[in-house]
Design a protein around this nucleic acid. Sequence first.
DNA 1: GCAAATTAATGATTTATTCAAG
DNA 2: CTTGAATAAATCATTAATTTGC
Lengths: 225, 225
Amino acid sequence: MGSMKVHQFARGFWEHEPSLTLGCKRLRPLAPKLATVTATTTETTSVVTTFDLKSFIKPESGPRKLGSSEDKGDSIQVETHPGGTRWNPTQEQIGILEMLYRGGMRTPNAQQIEQITAQLGKYGKIEGKNVFYWFQNHKARERQKQKRNSLGLANNSRTTTTPSIMTTITIDSRGRQEVSPYKRKCMSWRFECLQGNSNNMFSFDRDDEEGDKTLELFPLHPEGR
Amino acid sequence: MGSMKVHQFARGFWEHEPSLTLGCKRLRPLAPKLATVTATTTETTSVVTTFDLKSFIKPESGPRKLGSSEDKGDSIQVETHPGGTRWNPTQEQIGILEMLYRGGMRTPNAQQIEQITAQLGKYGKIEGKNVFYWFQNHKARERQKQKRNSLGLANNSRTTTTPSIMTTITIDSRGRQEVSPYKRKCMSWRFECLQGNSNNMFSFDRDDEEGDKTLELFPLHPEGR
DNA sequence: GCAAATTAATGATTTATTCAAG
DNA sequence: CTTGAATAAATCATTAATTTGC
């Protein structure tokens, strides 16, 4: 009956009046900090914060009605952004990315990603995160490929690198040796939901009556993976 | 003189005419694939792609003139977003975040992050990435804290969890057992540069003459961390 | 030849580790 | 020392390529 408890809590938690008291005395594991509480609409004694949790659940346009009219007319959904198709890079995009990689680019910052995305967008649909992930994956897999090669066999020369073209790029590894290995990035990425794929923590289910959607809380990773 | 080569390449690479040939024959380690190349502005033989690399370097507003008038009037730059100050959460923000955490939230998706950020923004400056990082860090550190406690001493009860309030939240771990452990997130974050902190890969230096800024390429991580 | 089954490659996420501000 | 921020490593999941049986 753990689920029941959660249900009760969930309902009381998410669907009550907008004014909700944070009933936690201890707000931080450490650091008393003299309580710089500047609660805008303080109610009574301790840290009471009004927090409109309702706006968390109902994003903007009502209940959304999952699976309402199930239009299965098309087998392949050809939309601007289909359901869950991942980025499928074109040859030009891969070529440019590899070129940049060979040029030395490893972890482009936000601005660079923005511009690369803009350029690659000429050759096919692409997003910033695709560029970001590509560099991460490529870097990591080149690294482990090198490690595997260094361990397995000791013969060097071209294994997977560029065959012979543009191999004159000898990346500078001198004069910048003293650069601290960690440079801050300070990339401020903004999150925006693509489609209402909110199957993360919240899920509606109807085990009571009809229409009365109860909110159930459950962790994404069931505690132990 | 590896640096020299890079310099040459960099200059020829970045500052040439907008038309640049991608001379890579092999585009994938496996898979011949019959070359579905649909190069928009194909020139001659293989994969030739016009790619305006100039727009990568000069973002929008000219050379920008690093360190032109060096206004050191203020020691601390108090701007909308200072140089490198990190998020300093308020008590209310921490309280709300912990409440959400105890409620079961572990990895909010983009939409949730957006809304949490909007709510927490009432109590102090905050960005989406702060919320994102907070959940990641909190989750990871709770985990390692539990691990440490489970190893060190075997007595249970409150160690760092909630003292006694709202401990009735027994997270549901039944009835959802069959849910595939991995749910897609499909968060499409957009990258935007916060401040021109592009100390990542590109850096201007003046080793030739004045005014002639040469672009130097060097890897962020000097090959081996 | 071709479609299902299998395998390899790789895009996308999560977790672990590390750096550094305060 | 705590913790925000960032990167590296591990992992999941999906698509393309290859194989296999007919």
